[in-house]
Amino acid sequence: MRVKSHPILGEDYRSEFVDITVDGKKIKAMAGEPIAAALLAAGIKIFRNTPKTGQPRGIFCGIGRCTDCVMTVNGVPNVRTCVTPVEEGMVVETQIGHGRWGENK
């Protein structure tokens, strides 16, 4: 959910969007925002499944340190989505386990 109007920060006047694809579905992202923000705005909370037990993981630290939020982005696994900005046409995939290079390229 996006915070369009805020009592302190005012209206959100940003209007530049990019399209990204998440697990095959197109979503609109705000230009320049981290991938994780675009996903949460679209209500997506599960970013990956752990290698051994397949447990779901999502964003945790938000500053690029814990690696809980890694996904496969443009075919490259283990990309920290909380610190990687979206780009037009980006292909983002829920990462299963350690991910595989090029699996979605």
Binding site: M1, V3, C61, C82
Partner: peptide, 23 residues
């Protein structure tokens, strides 16, 4: 504690105040 939806307060703060997205 590892379920998606559990996060640092700082991560939530960045989401709402910088990215303007509610977690």
């Amino acid at each position: 504690g590892t379920l998606p939806g559990v996060m640092g307060a700082g991560a939530a703060q960045t989401m709402i105040n910088v990215n303007r997205v509610l977690p």
